[in-house]
Design a protein around this nucleic acid. Structure first.
Length: 836
RNA sequence: GCGGGUGUGGCGGAAUGGUAGACGCCGGGGACUUAAAAUCCCCUGAUCUUUGAUCGUGUGGGUUCGAUUCCCACCACCCGCACCA
């Protein structure tokens, strides 16, 4: 082979066509091979593929290609999470239809993905905005309704009082509507809910079986579900009513100095009917949006009602407040305030000058120690609490619950932090909720033979609000029950619904049903699921819930959708800004020595922190330009190199150049493959066998950066070696090891070596276990834990020999300087540590 | 505010209780060349009294013969918080 350069601009497309024509990556569910379903979180078609997508899909692609080489029938599909707000925003800004905007984005992004050479089964592609897809989703929603997993209730939304429209949390900026700038309010609407709380226990327990999920994600889900044991009991109120409260800290009941109820608590609402002051306060509580962060960082506000609550043990009369930090949705919508041992209560009590008592202390002697500037939520012994004094927190909890239950005024109760999933969205570009409102028959499901309920095409986005609501004809229909005039539901489903079952539709897509249980059984669960850590809770919990709910209603027998989860880091880039704080994109700037300047006019540029690539900071690099310059394989290699895949990956121009150089370096090495070479090079052969095993282990553990480093090492060794059979073995090994990572280069070299088949169909190279073992090891010799010398010894040398050799070392003797040896620690094949 | 994570040379990182800095990038020196590109070779944590030694894995403590790794506290940054996807 002559010393040519590898030319990605011709090779990439050629091999991509070859795979397409051969159907190399089309999954055959009837294959005898073991099955492996590799899935990356499908993209939202925002317009262009970004580097984050490239990283995500490259990782999945390496796994898919590797699994295929290991003899699996691989399902590696791709589709589009196509409903969502950005399409409506585009409609408003650019006067395009959300559907056509989405479709053209999909077309462009699909082409981009194909240029990177991903091993995807495009025969299974779909978009969630396809009526076939969302029609099946509507059918599943109706099945859930029939199984009592769907209901309606009133719930709060962010309301823009100027635009008269519901706002997403993202559209609320510093408490104001993004378009109108008006201060946002909370408003109640009747909305659709899915009963995820019915599965709280199962979703919590199921985490224990997810052995191949990151611990952090399981912990986050566990905390999100938030199972807590506590006491529900009622205070007798001065107005004769009872006030049920829930607390996770019944042990601190003697420290209670007030009660607080939510603004929409019935007692607060009742007080408002004859008090303008209360009405005003409740109005005040409606200010601001609905996010947890906004609620919890907002100033604690309270209104002291004339009502008092009687403490169940002391009989003391405690004030009852209406407070903005109590949520009607959690527990009973009322709490007992224990300022000494709850930080929120502490702040509230400080503000309203309420008693702050210590009822938990480090030890009984500290019973009268003053409270510091904050609540003490930690463990300890109970003090100042009558019969509870001296008990541990846990014992006191149990004691109070027992007394409440035997006294008949309360009971131990499990409460979940998890709330039911509100799926109603007052927007156009989503799955229409398949129900009809009839004045006579109330709420009536759309009969299944009338599905899909499709979105109308003729909609306008000139006015704020839901176009479905305003549409002249769409919502007017007849009641399926009584035949009278009726109206369609105009809410659409949360887009998380679309992503809660798409992996099932990839596995099987019959026309007349959402999926085929027999096909589901073949492919599910997904063996490797890869996506961003930002989905650790919501998407993954909703997908787990849908799988369990569908399993519960008998659709199939799969409990958990994703056997293994991997959360990859973001792609980041340096930021560039001018003196006025405006951002510049990487291709607008140039480095002059140590300083950065704007290419256009030489204006000085400040290079800033390395952060996630984002349009707002302009620090984005377009994958298309990079592929055009360096080819797909260099980009793929960059995505796998250096940074561990779960961490952020900083993009750099010099890094991609290095990757491109390595592509060419490999091409030259493959060119030195010499079938006529003879002779053995045992050291190189051993390195090659070790690399075959190590790279496989690294890929299976998704340690791509380590696999890359090992390939560099073996490549360096093979380059330096003289021609031999061993060297040929090493070169062929490298070719196969890089095949999942740099598939175009691998195919080209494979073909040049005279192979007529595709390397994508080749098997992972075999290794000889006898070749993995080293004869010699280098061990460390330490004195007092510090390295003094190293020794090269036969592997498995006995302890006594190692000790004697270590003590004989000149460097060690110098360090010992005649001191008495008290102890020698010997770890065979690793080190000797001499203690004096 | 609450929940979760991360922190090692100029940069990305390796080492998960046993030789800190593998591998890559940047930088420096050299070879080849009329020259350049490409390629190849060598050096590259800091300090010092430099054939050697000391220091060094965010900060401060602790456990251990031995800690980047385990424990406690703190600091900084990142992710999520239920209508962004």
């Amino acid at each position: 082979m002559t010393e040519t350069r590898f030319d990605p601009s011709s090779a990439d497309g050629r091999w991509q066509r070859a795979w397409h024509e051969a159907g190399t990556f089309t999954a055959d569910s009837n294959s005898d091979k073991p099955k492996s379903y590799i899935l990356e979180m499908f993209p939202y078609p925002s317009g262009r593929i970004h580097m984050g997508h490239v990283r995500n899909y490259t990782m999945g692609d390496v796994l898919a290609r590797y699994k295929k080489m290991q003899g699996y029938e691989v399902l590696h599909p791709m589709g589009w999470d196509a409903f969502g707000m950005p399409a409506e925003n585009a409609a408003m800004e650019k006067k395009v239809h959300p559907g056509s905007w989405t479709r053209s984005n999909i077309e462009a992004m699909k082409e981009q993905l194909q240029r990177i050479g991903f091993a995807l089964d495009w025969t299974r592609e779909f978009a969630t905005c396809d009526p076939e897809y969302y029609g099946h989703e509507q059918a599943l929603f109706l099945d859930m309704y029939a199984s009592d997993l769907v209901y309606r209730r009133s719930s709060e939304v962010n309301w823009d009082p100027v635009d008269m429209t519901v706002l997403a949390n993202e559209q609320v900026i510093d408490g104001k509507g993004w378009r109108s700038g008006a201060e946002v309010e909370k408003r109640k609407l009747d909305q659709w809910f899915l009963k995820i709380t019915d599965f709280a226990d199962e979703l919590l327990d199921g985490l224990g079986d997810l052995k191949h999920w990151p611990d952090k994600v399981r912990l986050m889900q566990e905390n999100w579900i938030g199972k807590s044991q506590g006491l529900e009991f009622s205070f007798d109120l001065s107005n004769g009513q009872k006030l049920p409260v829930y607390t996770t800290r019944p042990d601190t009941i003697f420290g209670s100095s007030f009660c607080a109820i939510a603004a929409d608590h019935p007692i607060a609402q009742a007080l408002a009917t004859d008090s303008a002051e209360v009405t005003d306060f409740i109005e005040e509580c409606k200010r601001g949006g609905t996010t947890a962060a906004a609620l919890e960082t907002a100033e604690k506000l309270g209104y002291r009602t004339p009502i008092t609550a009687r403490h169940p043990f002391t009989g003391e009369a405690m004030p009852v407040f209406i407070a903005n930090f109590v949520l009607m949705d959690y527990g009973t919508g009322a709490v007992m305030g224990v300022p000494g041992h709850d930080q929120r209560d502490f702040e509230f009590a400080t503000k309203y000058d309420l008693p702050i008592a210590r009822v938990v202390a480090a030890d009984p002697a500290q019973a009268s120690a003053p409270m510091g500037g904050e609540a003490e939520a930690g463990d300890g012994v109970i003090v100042n609490s009558d019969f509870l004094d001296g008990k541990s927190v846990d014992d006191a909890k149990a004691d109070v619950i027992t007394r409440a239950e035997s006294g008949g005024w309360g009971e131990g109760k499990t409460v979940w932090r998890l709330r039911d999933w509100g799926v109603s969205r007052q927007r156009y570009w989503g799955t229409p909720i398949p129900f009809i409102h009839c004045a006579k028959c109330d709420i009536v499901p759309v009969p299944k033979d009338q599905l899909p309920v499709t979105l109308p095409d003729d909609v306008d986005f000139e006015t704020p609000g839901n176009p479905l609501e305003r549409h002249p004809t769409w919502k007017h229909t007849t009641c399926p029950k009584c035949g009278g005039a009726a109206e369609r539901e105009t809410d659409t489903l949360d887009t998380f619904t679309n992503s809660s079952w798409y992996f099932l539709r990839f596995a099987s897509q019959p026309a007349d049903a959402p999926f085929d249980p027999a096909e589901i059984a073949k492919w599910m669960p997904v063996q490797h699921y890869i996506g961003g850590i930002e989905h650790a809770i919501l998407h993954l919990l909703y997908a787990r819930f849908w799988t369990r709910a569908l399993s519960h209603i008998g659709k199939f027998d799969v409990k958990e959708p994703f056997a293994a989860l991997f959360t990859q880091g973001m792609v980041t880039h340096e930021t560039y800004s001018l003196g006025d704080g405006s951002w510049l994109s990487p291709d607008e700037v140039r480095k002059d020595g140590a300083d950065w300047t704007r290419i256009e006019d030489g204006a000085p540029v400040t290079s800033g922190r390395v952060v996630k690539m984002s349009k707002s900071k302009k620090n984005v690099v377009d994958p298309d330009n990079i592929i055009a310059n360096y080819g797909a394989d260099a980009v793929r290699w960059f995505m796998l190199s250096d940074s561990p895949p779960e961490r952020d990956l900083p993009w750099s121009e010099s890094g991609i150049e290095g990757c491109y150089r390595f592509v060419q370096r490999l091409w030259r090495l493959f060119g030195h493959y010499d079938p006529a070479a003879t002779g053995e090079d045992k050291a190189l052969a051993r390195k090659a066998h070790q690399a075959i095993v190590a790279v496989a282990e690294d890929i299976e553990a998704l340690g791509f950066n380590k696999a890359v480093a090992r390939i560099y090492e073996l490549t360096g060794a093979a380059e330096k070696a003289a021609p031999s059979e061993s060297r040929n073995f090493a070169i062929r090994a490298i070719l196969h090891l890089i095949a999942p990572m740099m598939p175009h280069l691998a195919e080209e070299a494979y073909s040049v070596m005279g192979e007529s088949a595709l390397i994508a169909d080749a098997a992972w190279p075999a290794h000889d276990p006898a070749m993995l073992v080293e004869d010699e090891v280098t061990i460390a010799v330490q004195h007092k834990g510090k390295l003094r010398d190293t020794l090269t010894v036969p592997k498995g040398a006995p302890k006594e020999d190692l000790e004697a050799l270590a003590l004989a070392s000149e460097k060690v003797q110098r360090s010992l300087d005649g001191a008495e040896v008290r102890k020698v620690i010997v770890v065979p094949d690793r080190l000797v540590n001499i203690v004096t």
